Amino acid sequence: MSSQPHIVLSWVVRRTRLPLLSLRCAVCRAESATAAKGRFRVNANGKLLDVWLLVRCVSCDRTIKLTVRERAPVSSFDPADLHGHHLNDPDLVAATLLDPWFARRCRFTLDWTDAWTLDAPTVPLDGWPVQVDVTFDDPVPVRPDRLIARRFGLTRAEVLGRVKSDIPLKRPTSTGFTFTVLADD
Rank of each mutant, 00 (worst) to 15 (best):
G127W: 07
L18F: 01
A157E: 14
S10M: 06
V58A: 10
F77V: 04
T109E: 08
M1E: 04
T67H: 03
F108E: 12
P100L: 11
P5Q: 11
F77R: 11
A94C: 09
A26V: 01
V123S: 08
F102Y: 07
V159E: 04
V55F: 02
P79R: 01
F102G: 10
A95P: 11
R146N: 14
H6L: 08
R17D: 06
A103G: 05
V93Y: 00
V134R: 06
C57D: 05
R171M: 13
D78N: 14
G127E: 12
V51T: 00
W116F: 15
D119C: 13
D145F: 01
H83M: 09
A157Q: 14
L147S: 08
A36M: 01
W128F: 13
L21P: 02
R39P: 04
G153L: 00
L98G: 03
D166V: 10
S76K: 11
M1L: 01
L18D: 02
R24G: 12
I64L: 15
D166A: 08
T34G: 10
T135A: 13
L92P: 06
T173R: 06
V93L: 00
H6D: 01
A72K: 13
A157D: 14
A72E: 12
H85S: 02
K65N: 13
V12C: 13
C25Y: 07
S22T: 14
R143E: 15
D91T: 05
R143S: 13
R41V: 12
L66C: 10
D50H: 09
G161P: 03
H86Q: 08
A44V: 10
K170P: 05
D138P: 01
L66K: 01
K164N: 08
T180N: 10
Q4P: 02
F177H: 01
D111W: 04
D137V: 01
S165H: 07
S165N: 02
T117M: 13
V68N: 01
W11D: 03
W101T: 14
R107M: 11
K170D: 14
T117I: 12
K170Q: 14
K65E: 15
V123N: 05
R146H: 15
D145G: 00
H83T: 06
R17A: 12
S174Q: 13
T155G: 11
C106I: 02
D145N: 13
L49F: 10
L20P: 07
L53K: 06
W11L: 09
S3L: 15
K47W: 03
D138I: 09
D138V: 04
T178H: 09
R69S: 03
C25M: 09
L169H: 00
S10V: 05
D185A: 12
L125Y: 03
S75D: 07
L20S: 11
D166N: 14
G176F: 03
A30S: 15
D114R: 11
R156Q: 15
F40I: 05
I64D: 08
V123M: 04
T175I: 14
R29A: 12
V130W: 05
L125R: 15
P144K: 13
L97R: 06
I64P: 05
R105Y: 00
I7R: 09
Q131Y: 11
A95K: 09
C28D: 05
P141T: 04
C28I: 08
R41C: 02
D91C: 07
A30Q: 11
V140R: 02
T96K: 01
S75I: 10
L160W: 03
A115V: 07
R150T: 13
L110W: 11
